[in-house]
């Protein structure tokens, strides 16, 4: 069990969340050539160490989050909403 500090709900068990994937992937525009999509969808790094990844707080606020997590130690360095506008609104609300 790892614990994820959700910026909205506080620190919660990871069983409330669903793992998304590598958050560093830039999905290409819909009209991009298949080669670009192939890279984005299939070619993944298997990171040992700190990795930015998406998690969905499915049984919480339903927000998609970007979590910086060490894949070796589970240390969590940062958590922020994936949506830049929501992240900014959260910052301003503080």
């Amino acid at each position: 069990m790892i614990r994820i500090p959700c910026p909205f709900c506080g620190e919660r068990d990871h069983s409330e969340f669903t793992y998304g994937g590598d958050a560093s992937i830039e999905y290409p525009p819909l009209d991009a050539p298949p080669e670009q999509w192939l890279r984005a969808v299939f070619e993944r790094e298997n990171v040992r160490g700190m990795q930015a990844e998406t998690w969905h707080h499915a049984n919480g606020c339903r927000l998609w989050l970007v979590v910086e997590r060490d894949t070796l130690t589970h240390e969590i360095r940062s958590v922020r909403p994936a949506h830049a506008g929501i992240a900014q609104a959260l910052e301003e609300g503080r």
Binding site: G20, T54, H56, A82, H83, I86
Partner: peptide, 13 residues
């Protein structure tokens, strides 16, 4: 539902 939320929050904000 999860998929639509992912698209709106992570790809097409």
């Amino acid at each position: 539902m999860v998929w639509l939320e992912e698209l709106l929050q992570t790809r097409w904000p």
